[in-house]
């Protein structure tokens, strides 16, 4: 079922050219040498493989957390809180058991459960998933900040949580993430449940006609999405930060960035592997642009923003038009 679509490649290439062209204009207007800025961005962004892979891991997984539900027609903006609960439960399980495997499993399950909760509220109580997710994001942000600073603070380093014990720290987290992406790809395109999710996402009425319930697919996709984000949180803590600081700076924002990564990867798990790498490189490189050129960090952020928008907008626009079209024809 793998095949290459010329239109798609062309679109991404065009977006890329436009993105960097717009970026160049922004740089020139602000008085920076675009060649220098870009070369620093790419040299440092993609120069440190270990860093790049670690940085990409949670982003890849929150990208999946957005895209798998998106394929089934749900807008999962809750990758953020699903990653939080994955991170905190994995940390605590590792803390108590001293081993990684139960921590990964329980962290993943926690994310999945949270995703399922949001979906269940939509399916059974007709509560908009975006609103639920936004509220839960903040609820869990503060709850975890409380846990980390009040209940599980590291007595030696009070601004951090208890650390992951050395025996529970793991490496190679990026490959676990890639494996997850490939598994999701397989599920979506080679299994009945994946097929049903895809049909439900594009046309719930067709799903109903075919005799399966789009609501059930909403639940399934949010379960899978939440599991990905939860796994992302677990891997982040067990394989990169080993702790959560009281300002939550290590885990904050990854779920939101995941939305952009999902769109950039065209909601395709394999595409998301690459979009997460691409985006992580930009984020990493952006820090060095500040160091090397003296430009404020906002410059790199702006540049990344412009690039992501140019890459994601045509796709997001088409998705939106499709939704509007569906609604129009249903009326």
């Amino acid at each position: 079922m793998l095949s290459v679509d010329r239109e798609s490649i062309l679109e991404v290439l065009m977006s890329l050219i436009i993105a960097f062209a717009v970026g160049t204009v922004v740089l020139v207007v602000l008085g920076y040498d675009p060649i220098r800025v870009y070369s620093i961005l790419f040299k440092y962004g993609y120069g440190n493989t270990d860093y790049l892979l670690k940085k990409s891991t949670p982003l890849l997984l929150t990208g999946l957390a957005f895209s798998v539900p998106a394929i089934a027609g749900v807008f999962n903006i809750g990758g953020e809180s699903q990653l939080y609960v994955g991170a905190i439960t994995a940390l605590l399980v590792a803390h108590y058991t001293g081993s990684a495997i139960p921590a990964v499993i329980i962290g993943t399950a926690a994310g999945a459960l949270l995703g399922l909760t949001i979906a269940a509220l939509r399916v059974y109580r007709n509560i908009n998933e975006v609103i639920t997710a936004i509220m839960l994001n903040w609820t869990f942000f503060y709850f975890i900040a409380y846990l980390v600073s009040a209940k599980y603070a590291n007595p030696k380093v009070p601004h951090e949580s208890v650390p992951v014990p050395p025996g529970a720290r793991i490496g190679g987290i990026f490959f676990i993430a890639v494996l997850t992406a490939l598994t999701y790809y397989y599920v979506l395109h080679f299994t009945e449940i994946g097929y049903k999710m895809r049909v439900s996402g594009v046309s719930p009425q067709s799903a109903r006609y075919a005799g399966f319930s789009p609501e059930k697919m909403v639940l399934t996709s949010m379960l899978l999405g939440g599991a990905a984000a939860g796994l992302g949180g677990a891997l982040l803590v067990l394989g990169a930060t080993y702790t959560i600081d009281t300002t939550l700076s290590a885990i904050y924002g990854i779920g939101f960035t995941g939305i952009g990564i999902g769109l950039l990867g065209r909601n395709n798990p394999v595409g998301i592997i690459f979009s997460s790498l691409f985006m992580s490189g930009l984020i990493i490189g952006g820090q060095w642009v500040e160091l090397k050129t003296g430009a404020p960090p906002e410059l790199a952020d702006t540049l990344i923003g412009v690039i992501v928008i140019a890459l994601a907008v045509p796709y997001a626009y088409r998705l939106l038009m499709k939704k509007v079209g569906q609604r129009g024809s249903a009326a």
């Binding site: 299994t191 097929y195 594009v202």
Partner: peptide, 29 residues
């Protein structure tokens, strides 16, 4: 046809819409 077919999917993906039992084996397509 908006109900019976999924416009964004391939012909084959539309053919199996109501024929899933014939083309799946233990959950696999």
């Amino acid at each position: 046809r908006k109900v019976g077919l999924v416009g964004d999917m391939k012909i084959v993906e539309n053919v199996i819409l109501t024929n899933l039992p014939r083309v799946t084996s233990s959950g696999r397509i």
